[in-house]
């Protein structure tokens, strides 16, 4: 069924149509939040709040003016940035604890160790990037999301997003090199 038809039905209170929207978008939201360096518990909280806000405000969505995926990702991004800017928040160190309970369950021990090291390295790098850069980097790895869509999520022009993304990658590279050195 068409996703725009699902959101129209959800706006009229159809729970099943809303459930289909959650099924289609949950993977993208979790991947996005994970790539922002959030641990699985925080990502779950933010994803849940994202979908609850979508439900409450479903009647404000206008398919002529925006894309549903972009809209959902914008909500998730804003919630994640609010979380990351909170002064008392705990530092996200998902790499160490979550390798075991996610994708590397099926890996051999040496592969799991390698995956764990990769994650720790990535999280160390991400934690030193500004939250907006983390969001930008994470959005750039979402499939089917072009520069214009990323720009809408980030509230910037595609040109500005391109420049900021380049700078964020340079900074990340610098951080990773410092860590390696």
């Amino acid at each position: 069924m068409d996703i725009n038809s699902d959101i129209s039905q959800a706006a009229r209170g159809d729970h099943n149509a809303f459930g289909r929207i959650v099924v289609v978008h949950q993977g993208k939201i979790f991947a996005f939040l994970g790539r922002m360096g959030l641990d699985s518990a925080t990502a779950e909280d933010i994803a849940q709040e994202t979908f609850l806000r979508l439900w409450r405000n479903a009647n404000q969505f206008d398919p002529k003016r925006s894309n549903l995926t972009t809209w959902i990702l914008t909500i998730a991004r804003n919630l994640a940035l609010t979380h990351l800017s909170r002064p008392g928040r705990r530092v996200e160190i998902a790499g160490a604890s979550e390798v075991e309970d996610t994708a590397s369950d099926a890996l051999q021990p040496d592969e799991a160790l390698l995956a764990k090291q990769r994650r720790e390295r990535l999280h160390a790098g991400l934690n030193r990037l500004a939250p907006v850069d983390r969001s930008l980097m994470a959005a750039s790895y979402i499939e089917d999301l072009d520069l214009a869509a990323i720009a809408r999520i980030e509230g910037a022009t595609p040109g500005a997003v391109k420049v900021r993304l380049h700078r964020a990658r340079l900074k990340m590279r610098q951080i990773l090199e410092e860590d390696d050195g």
Binding site: G19, V22, V23, Q26, G27, I29, F30, A31, L33, G34, R35, G37, L38, S40, A43, E44, A47, Q48, E98, T102, A103, A115, R118, R119, R121, L122, G125, M137, A138, Y141, L176
Partner: peptide, 14 residues
């Protein structure tokens, strides 16, 4: 590194 960092939703999330 970014490709490896994929969180997945819990099975009963939806």
């Amino acid at each position: 590194l970014m490709a490896s960092e994929i969180l997945t939703p819990p099975p009963d999330f939806a």
